[in-house]
Design a protein around this nucleic acid. Structure first.
Ligand SMILES: [Mn+2]
Ligand SMILES: [Mn+2]
Ligand SMILES: [Mn+2]
Ligand SMILES: [Mn+2]
Lengths: 219, 219
DNA sequence: CATCTTTTTTAGACTCGTCTAAATTTATTT
DNA sequence: AAATAAATTTAGACGAGTCTAAAAAAGATG
């Protein structure tokens, strides 16, 4: 129904609105989509005319119920395709994003529902992000960043905040993957780096890494 | 690389060039793609400028080596996705064409090669059409239409010439599927219909049906 | 071969998504 | 509060792909 372009705008607005409260700015959308603010302004007018966003000039934008439903469906498709690529075609978790970026626009609910069943109804994608169900309901997992737990606290790695190829490959080199159990051994106040124990091995992780790693604590 | 539109033109030209000898006409392309002749003329100029077709005004067109290679890759992707949809997601053979029409444009050789392996390197799609290999080589099966075999000759159903939903669903109602063995029992000269025996059951098929059913004879 | 018909191409226009440059509004700072 | 800075929108343009209407070429017919 909606063009690739419109779908990408909706997804971007949804994503940005999750990271802050209040409306999403024109510049933020331009940055996310890789386009210019002028282009975004034009598009916001069209999306608004189609009742996909709430929009007052100069005031930022938020998705309407209809717009949010469409965004969630695209996210659902994106994440299910990512699971397919990793689980069935043996792609690595750092290789699947761009492909899913294309596959998410394939227009068929029947296809995506069957794919979901074929994959045994996964609840999370390869990066630990939750998969919205058919009606767009998304269950956020109870998880905290590694920066938010104390010395001697333990956690299981459940996801990443930064899904960039670079970060994912860095985690690979360190042998850190989803499901790993770790314990914080020491926090260095100087640079906020932390020493953790994982698989019986000690390693030190920078503040930047800890900020971007989600764990579920054993509370 | 090439846009969806360009890919669809190349595929259409390839398909039409298989059905006749000589160049493909502007009108035929317009008809195949569902557009107007004027639009096709414009596009032919662009494809020619990009060295994807040989083109002389008013003379029809043929694909260059480069154009043919691209067309075959799209056909390869189309057919492998069709196999996936039928074999893995349990779609029926009459349901998969339009979805494959979208999926064929996903731009990744790595993806399609992995999909091929995941599907156990199928050689034919759900309609019996051969799947080009990685280098675009396509092995046409030795098969003939049901109109071309004699009374008492036997054959195994290997494909359909007409892949329309209507014909495929008709075959379903008659219980005819790929792999079925049949024998021609009688040919009626009056309307060229034929009586066949299949699974021990006799049935009469019209000339139109026989023309569109391919079989491999036991020669 | 001259005319009529069909096919194909050109001309001009439209939509979608994009851009740069300029104008406008909002936010921040003295 | 005025001045300056930053964010946003408007104006005007462009390429891709499409259309309708008109012109031109090729093909068929008497
Ligand atoms: Mn996308
Ligand atoms: Mn993901
Ligand atoms: Mn297509
Ligand atoms: Mn097919």
């Amino acid at each position: 129904m909606a063009s690739f372009t419109v779908e990408n705008y909706l997804k971007a607005i949804y994503g940005l609105s999750q990271k802050q409260r209040g409306g999403v700015s024109t510049n933020a959308i331009a940055e996310a989509i890789g386009t210019k603010a002028a282009t975004v302004s034009d598009m916001l007018k069209k999306l608004s005319a189609n009742k996909l966003i709430h929009y007052k000039k100069y005031q930022g934008t938020t998705l309407t119920t209809k717009g949010a439903a469409m965004a969630l469906n695209i996210i659902r498709k994106h994440r299910l395709w990512e699971v397919f690529l990793v689980e069935k075609l043996d792609f690595r978790w750092d290789e699947v994003h761009d492909l899913a970026e294309e596959l998410e626009h394939i227009d068929s609910d029947e296809l995506i529902n069957r794919l979901e069943a074929f994959l045994d109804n996964p609840k999370f994608d390869p990066h630990g992000d939750p998969i919205p169900d058919k009606s767009g309901v998304i269950h956020q997992r109870e998880q905290v960043a590694l920066t938010d737990i104390q010395v001697n606290e333990a956690g299981v790695v459940t996801g990443v905040k930064d899904s960039s190829k670079e970060f994912l490959q860095f985690l690979d080199t360190q042998g850190i993957e989803l499901g790993d159990r770790l314990v914080i051994k020491e926090v260095f106040e100087y640079d906020k780096s932390r020493t953790i124990e994982l698989d019986g091995k000690a390693m030190t992780l920078s503040h930047q890494v800890c900020k971007n790693l989600y764990v579920k604590t054993e509370a």
